[in-house]
Design a binder for these strands. Structure first.
Lengths: 246, 246
DNA sequence: ACAGTATTTATCCAACGGGTTAATTACTCC
DNA sequence: GGAGTAATTAACCCGTTGGATAAATACTGT
């Protein structure tokens, strides 16, 4: 019954009988990781329940240990997968061929939309940081995938300075952290912020407003032309300016 | 033994004999909340252990329930205390009497230094957001303490626009969220960011650099004069520019 | 068709963790 | 100095939870 929903990962897909049940190790592993992602992001590391993960994956608890490992290893696997996904999508942004201010806007919009589309990513990072990156430090995969990304941003900044669009050569790492921060904090803390400020920060209009604000802030700072950009920000009626990036 | 360290809250302080032990309900409550703050911020909500809190407070587990309540109530009490503390310090910032750009710089520096001095505050907020503000929503105290704060910022922005220092009248809530975001994300995620970017973001120089970057970014965006500010940012040798705000 | 292996299930358990109960001790006020 | 109350302690309860064991079942190559 449960096997009907998961395609066999092996292309051969024999479409066998399922008199009782079929085996599906690859599919099982994926379902476990997906279930674990949901569980860890919903309840944190300590709050996550191994049994719930198993149930959600339509599996037996023993399967987790068989296919991945104990709770911590499972968590690290999920985390690595999450980083892999965002960095690989970023690689497709193609910032090299845009003029610098547009490239920055694009990066901000992508980051914002990615975080919106993948709220579990935010939770996972929060959880990992509460654990002071204990797990991530043991990962070799993750460290390697970031220098190309930084170089991509560095190039944009340099091009912007050369063309006269940008007034300063900011450190690409600082810039990216700031861009990520503006989206990340707003979204990851939207629950408490909504309470203390008495606004629903996740309402459609509020989100549009936020994106416009962030783009205005960063691009204005880099180019020195604040007024024009922020004015756009004040009347974000047109959905075009807020289009999905991916 | 343990009572020697805590002054009696009742001014009368009889300096009695401590043949065995004295009572100290107020002190006990404070010690419990302090211990709970540490425990919750170090391990999150689910990861926190009631027994450890008791031990750390030099108390019996039963005391927590007697003086505060169950784990959730304890957590909410800690959270409310944390909000109370930062908002009350902010009230002393006296932004009204500074010229607008300086006031913004001051707010950024305060926020940054406060987060640096109170890392548990960051953890607590992260934890609460992972719980989708479930506890905070039940709190009546917290909601009320924020509108004055927003008005304070609104006034600064308005003055800045009137004086011509600022080129745009940004929404004070957006502005504050952005200011908080730039510091919060950097610090709360410093563990994972340090790993993926291969830099120690908490090293002294890195922190100075970050503060300069944030001030440059925000003030430049508001005033439209990026170059000057960011140039300062690139040579933050003088500690004066990075002085403690509180 | 059969032996061997990979995958999955059905149980079990010891430690843990939040919370409670009941007894004990310090303090207050008369 | 003693009754009544507030604060504190010690011990226990019981559902939960991560993890382990061993048996069963599907699959593979021969």
């Amino acid at each position: 019954m449960r096997r009907e929903s998961t395609q066999r990962a092996t292309g051969l897909a024999k479409a066998k009988q399922n008199l009782k049940w079929q085996r599906d190790p690859e599919g099982m592993r994926l379902r476990i990781l997906e279930a674990a992602k949901q569980e860890f992001s919903a309840h944190g590391l300590a709050g996550a329940r191994v049994d719930r993960i198993a149930a959600k994956a339509g599996a037996n608890k023993r399967m987790l240990y068989y296919h991945v490992g104990n709770k911590d290893e499972l968590y690290l696997a999920v985390l690595e997968g999450a980083y892999d996904k965002i960095r690989s999508e970023e690689r497709g942004l193609d910032l090299e061929h845009l003029d610098p201010p547009e490239a920055i806007r694009r990066l901000i919009e992508f980051t914002w939309n990615y975080f919106l589309r993948n709220p579990e990513f935010l939770s996972l990072l929060q959880t990992e940081n509460l654990a002071r990156a204990k797990h991530l430090k043991r990962s070799t995969k993750v460290k390697s995938m970031h220098s190309p990304f930084v170089e991509m941003i560095r190039t944009v900044v340099r091009r912007g300075v050369d063309s006269g669009d940008f007034q300063v050569a900011v450190d690409p790492v600082q810039l990216y952290i700031s861009i990520a921060a503006l989206s990340f904090f707003y979204l990851s803390n939207s629950a408490t912020l909504s309470v203390i400020f008495g606004r629903d920060l996740l309402a459609k209009d509020a989100k549009d407003e936020r994106l416009a604000h962030m783009v205005g802030l960063v691009v204005a700072a880099l180019t020195g032309r604040s007024a024009a950009l922020f004015e756009i920000a004040k009347a974000p009626k047109s959905r075009a300016a807020v289009a999905q990036t991916v």
